[in-house]
Design a protein around this nucleic acid. Structure first.
Length: 738
RNA sequence: GGGCGGUUAGCUCAGUUGGUAGAGCGUUCGCUUGACGUGCGAAAGGUCAUAGGUUCAAGCCCUAUACCGCCCACCA
């Protein structure tokens, strides 16, 4: 009997995996099977950013999703797992800016918009190529024929259409509001993109007429003309609300007005503060409540405006000590508390310290009713989760989701960066007409066009100028579950339903990290709900973050990332996958070490040797079912029946770790250690045929059960069965019956 | 300030509806067993953070405490 020569050697993932992947791809197994008998399974790959390459966290995510996809496929479902990448606007732009500055000492303004964008696109393309290779290496059974990019033409059309529909419904508006301004990247960012860092700074107690006020930012205080105290604070009962008094301030006397507001914490400092509504959200809300004026003090690059008098034109950082010196000379400094701890806002996308600014931007209104029932976008996001139409795993994130929605303010979607979708709005040249309050003129003359570009105004022939800003990257990724399925079928209204959309939307499950629950998951529910009247997915499965051995988040800047491809090269993709899945649980972070991956390489080796033994014992013919099966053998079959049921239930319940662990344990410690050992002597007796059948049956079943977890080695062993043909691939073999 | 998660073997972590504790790595002893030394056989090692409670039965449920971590929040 001639054993396949591959079985003579130890298992070599390097010589096997790429070949198997090519076979899968060429066979069309990754595409949805048109005649699949048991319904539909669809899922999108959480589009990796083209800011770099994949790390082990991505690998864990891909593993979980591939398990889902392969299991669904084997269950006979029409299975679509759709891949793609995200242009990640601000993250990619700031990354490329950084590289160019480091290598050439030039800024994006030195290069100009066109050349800079060319560079970014180059970078994005290179990054995308690496990512695609990495995804393949991991064995991901994604349908490459449907690969998408958030910035390609079909997705751009979806963005323009979505913008127009939201605009026409009055849900996108232009407004002047206090926004998060990043002076370093020169753009606004949304509330969610802000990271709070603890900073230790002096706290200044300054004399403000009869009051002593506290501040951490004396350089913003030039325009302060309101002093706020708590209404019931007995220290200030002699001052009436609205009372005016003249106080000596930094650049001379100012008229101060007393305001009483319950937001004031009487215990803090002296219980009195002055407000800077133009550069502080809390202050601006106080100002809004009492109808107070607001004056800008700091400009968009961080320099003081003429209101600062002699300090005008200086950067606030440099001006602060000089201002303090002047206050000192004027005798206005009561005391300075040295180590005051407070939170400062930082742009988490590689940007600078946020300076709130009052700017005109585009917003999505989340609290504005848009239909007869008075539905708001907020409710649209809340309802499907509240009614369990969308189920979040693990469940505790449901509460976190609601809490976020309840605190949500209008979403600032315009960015002043260059890379990304242009805001699909065009205005008359040379005059850019402000929109708010001038809707009538717009109707008459089309001073503004939204959605698809228009060269000239059909009414007065004036040329149109595009809005200079770009969109928040999450605007386009929010459309992902349906923009990838051909939405919109036609930009000018028309039927929205493409065949793909009808078949695959809503998608079955969204598997992603809990860190983008708000950024992405919520936005998808919003977009899908408003534009399609559908939920985007039925289940949200949230995985934890993969951290390094020290528990730190992996990131390039910390230098603690592990390249998944390096691990695949060393231990094989199957081993890496098992290491990433076993011992993890949804929503909880995990730490990964190379030792763990090596351990599962040993398992792959074990499985390979089980295959060598059983296939060699079985020979060239598939063993026939014996007429009589000994009771002991029957028990072993039933034992595997039980395991099959358990593993199936675990997979249906998204308990991947448990399912994999049970299979691991069975294959090693039952099939190999007990069953094979017991079979060895029997093979030499007249029970040979019965034993061959038993071993082969258990082995064949084990391969099927293990395939979603360790696809490469199981597929390879499958192809080594007696009389195996190249068209009978394990990937498309039915899951064992339960 | 509010909410959430964690605390299980030397290390890193699992533990599905409550029923005599598991994995990887590490440690000790013995094995050229013809699938595998990337292995086999055996072993050591856990009062499952602490204190109460519910239960025939608790790592798992309830209450409180301690420490670690995360998220959210308009204390200047």
């Amino acid at each position: 009997m001639a054993l396949d020569e591959r079985l003579l050697k130890p298992y070599d993932p390097k010589a096997t995996e790429d070949r198997i992947y090519r076979q899968w791809e060429a066979s069309g197994a990754f595409a949805p099977r048109p005649d699949a008998p048991n319904g539909v399974f669809s899922m999108v790959l959480p589009l990796p950013n083209v800011t770099g390459t994949l790390h082990l966290g991505h690998a864990a995510m891909i593993t979980i999703e591939d398990i889902l996809a392969r299991y669904a496929r084997m269950r006979g479902k029409k299975t679509l797992w759709l891949p793609g990448t995200d242009h990640a606007a601000i993250a990619t732009q700031s990354k490329v800016e950084e590289i160019i500055y480091k290598q050439e000492g030039r800024t994006r303004h030195d290069l100009g918009r066109e050349e800079f964008l060319r560079r970014v696109e180059q970078f994005a393309a290179a990054s995308r190529n690496i990512i695609v290779k990495q995804i393949r290496k991991l064995g991901a059974s994604v349908d490459w024929s449907r690969e998408a990019f958030t910035l390609d033409e079909p997705r751009s059309r979806a963005v323009r259409t979505a913008f127009k529909r939201l605009y026409d419904a009055g849900l996108i508006y232009r407004g002047r509001r206090l926004v998060n301004w990043d002076p370093k990247l020169q753009t606004t960012v949304s509330d969610d993109e802000i990271e709070w860092q603890t900073e230790t700074t002096p706290l200044y107690y300054l004399k403000y007429g009869p009051f002593v006020i506290t501040t951490a930012r004396p350089e913003t205080k030039f325009g302060d003309k309101y002093v706020v105290v708590h209404p019931t604070d007995e220290r200030y009962t002699q001052f009436q609300s609205g009372q005016k008094l003249t106080v000596e301030w930094i650049n001379g006397p100012v008229t101060a007005t007393v305001v009483k507001d319950e937001i004031i914490d009487r215990e803090f400092g002296t219980g009195a503060m002055t407000i800077t509504p133009a550069h502080d959200l809390a202050d601006s809300e106080i100002a809004a409540r009492h109808g107070l004026d607001s004056e800008q003090v700091i400009d968009l690059v961080g320099k003081l405006l003429p209101i600062a008098g002699e300090f005008s034109g200086q950067h606030w950082k440099k001006a602060r000590p000089k201002i303090m010196a002047k206050l000192e000379t004027k005798g206005l400094v009561e005391k300075i508390e040295a180590n005051y701890e407070h939170q400062i806002a930082v742009n988490s996308r590689g940007g600078g310290i946020i300076e709130p600014q009052l700017l005109e931007q585009w917003f999505v209104a989340v609290n504005k009713p848009f239909d007869d029932q008075g539905t708001t976008l907020k409710e649209l996001m809340r309802r499907p989760v509240a009614t369990d139409e969308i189920k979040i795993i693990p469940e505790r994130f449901t509460k976190i989701y609601f809490h976020w929605i309840d605190n949500l303010r209008d979403w600032c979607i315009s960015r002043q960066i260059w890379y990304g979708h242009r805001i699909p709005v065009w205005r008359h040249e040379p005059k850019c007409v402000p929109i708010v309050g001038r809707e009538k003129e717009i109707e008459k003359c089309q001073e503004i066009v939204v959605g698809e570009p228009l060269e000239k105004c059909p009414h007065c022939n004036a040329k149109f100028t595009p809005d200079p800003d770009t969109l928040d990257t999450w605007f386009s990724s929010g459309l992902w579950t349906f923009s990838t399925l051909g939405w919109p079928a036609s930009p000018a209204g028309g039927p929205d339903q493409t065949e793909d959309l009808k078949t695959f939307h809503p998608t079955t499950v969204l598997e992603t990290g809990y860190d983008i629950l708000f950024f992405w998951v919520a936005r998808m529910i919003l977009m899908s709900g408003f534009l399609l009247g559908q939920i985007p997915f039925h289940i949200v499965y949230l995985h934890g973050l993969v951290r390094d051995a020290g528990g730190r988040k992996m990131s390039k800047s910390k230098g603690n990332t592990i390249d998944p491809v390096t691990m695949v090269d060393k231990y094989g993709a199957d081993a890496l996958r098992l290491a990433l899945i076993i011992g993890t649980s949804p929503g909880n972070d995990s730490k990964i070490s190379e030792d763990r991956i090596r351990g599962y390489k040993h398992f792959a080796n074990k499985l390979w040797n089980i295959g060598r033994f059983i296939l060699a014992a079985v020979g060239n013919e598939t063993p026939a079912r014996p007429a009589a099966i000994p009771a002991a053998d029957q028990k072993l079959i039933e034992q595997l029946d039980d395991l099959t049921r358990e593993v199936t239930v675990d997979l249906e319940a998204y308990r991947f770790s448990l399912a994999a662990e049970k299979l691991y344990h069975y294959v090693w410690h039952t099939l190999a250690d007990k069953i094979i050992e017991a079979a060895k002597p029997r093979l030499l007796t007249d029970e040979t045929e019965q034993v061959k059948w038993l071993l082969y049956t258990l082995f064949e079943r084990s391969l099927r059960l293990l395939h979603p977890f360790a696809p490469f080695i199981t597929e390879e062993l499958w192809s080594l069965r007696p009389r195996a043909t190249s068209s009978e691939r394990l990937i498309t073999t039915p899951w064992p019956a339960t």
